[in-house]
């Protein structure tokens, strides 16, 4: 049986206590919410924190607040709750869809929206057991000094594999963080970095407390996910779209984000520009999709061939736009 390495476990009762514990124990401590990403990684010794700070008692993390300006989601809300919440389904269908496609039902009962947004980057050379990685000679992301995906690469190329992160970026979400030095708000887009090791723009003590998504009244949105099986699997390519059309059908605003093709979600600015001010017809959608797909530079470190993932990017952007348009 694969087992967890030993650790001490703390159960803080509020955010202040949690953050101060984290500050006290430093980088050897980790926050633990649903555990669905952290515990497998610990069992494979990808990380071996001395201390875990359990977040389950923090009631603030499970609040949902909906008003005219948008929605606030506590980071501790389970993925199934996000997927099945009638208001979220109505107001942010791409988000509920992305959440509903994470892994499998049991895991969505445990895993949290915050956990999915902070999901560790993944790589076939990294998400392996300790004996496997030892046989490999370890890698840049953990215990080694070489990136096996591209041996000359100075940075780790592990992939952002969160379903919800591209949607959060597409919906212009704000992340509310609390750290030793107080509270901070950051745009989702700013939160992610294209580096497989330092993929989150936050200090170790900062805790993602809530996610604020502005009102998207009048917006249309979509989410498409590529994977081999219809359950359990992470995305190997994903696309989130959000379009704002006026009454005449002219695109006032567009946000298109690719997931699982880099170490962070990739915003397709060129495609967005192409769509803005135009009525999206088949030809324009095709052109925009091709423009967006240029961003997809997948590496050979997840399931399916990188060539296919690259080729499918345009298809998926097109389908995600069409899904938003209800086509």
């Amino acid at each position: 049986m694969l087992r967890l390495p030993p650790f001490e476990y703390y159960t803080p009762q509020n955010i202040t206590e949690a953050v101060s514990l984290k500050a006290r124990f430093g980088e050897d401590a980790m926050y633990s919410a649903g555990g669905t990403d952290l515990y497998p990684n610990m069992k494979r010794k990808q990380c071996t924190p001395n201390t875990l700070i359990g977040l389950n008692e923090l009631k603030e993390l499970s609040l949902i607040n909906i008003d005219d300006d948008g929605i606030s989601l506590g980071s501790g809300i389970s993925l199934n709750e996000v997927a099945n919440h009638p208001e979220i389904q109505k107001l942010y269908p791409a988000l509920s869809k992305a959440a509903s496609l994470v892994s499998a039902p049991q895991l969505r009962n445990m895993g949290t929206i915050g956990g999915n947004l902070c999901l560790d980057t993944r790589c076939t050379y990294y998400n392996q057991t300790y004996p496997w990685r030892k046989a490999l000679g370890f890698c840049l992301k953990k215990d080694g000094d070489i990136c096996w995906v591209a041996r000359s690469s100075p940075v780790c190329l592990a992939i952002s594999s969160s379903d919800c992160a591209p949607v959060a970026v597409a919906l212009n979400a704000e992340f509310h963080l609390t750290g030793e030095n107080g509270q901070r708000i950051t745009a989702a887009e700013e939160f992610y970095l294209n580096d497989g090791i330092s993929f989150l723009n936050k200090t170790h003590d900062e805790l993602l407390v809530s996610i604020r998504i502005p009102s998207h009244e009048g917006w249309l949105m979509g989410y498409k996910k590529l994977r081999r099986r219809d359950s359990i699997d992470f995305p190997v390519l994903s696309v989130a779209t959000a379009l704002h059309l006026d009454k005449a059908g002219v695109c006032k605003n567009a946000r298109i984000v690719l997931g699982a093709v880099a170490s962070c979600p990739q915003r397709a600015l060129q495609a967005e520009t192409l769509l803005k001010g135009e009525k999206p017809n088949a030809e324009l959608i095709e052109t925009s999709a091709i423009a967006a797909a240029k961003l997809a530079k997948p590496m050979d470190n997840t399931d399916m061939t990188l060539g296919y993932r690259k080729k499918m990017a345009a298809n998926f952007v097109k389908e995600a736009i069409n899904e938003a348009l209800g086509q």
Binding site: A104, T124, N127, Q128, T129, W132, A135, L136, R228, R229, D230, S231, I232, D233, F234, D303
Partner: peptide, 17 residues
């Protein structure tokens, strides 16, 4: 080195497949 020695990476069809 085995490429996919886990139940996640070795793909066994689920009920949805």
């Amino acid at each position: 080195l085995h490429k996919n020695p886990s139940m996640l990476d070795y793909k066994s069809p689920t009920s949805l497949d």
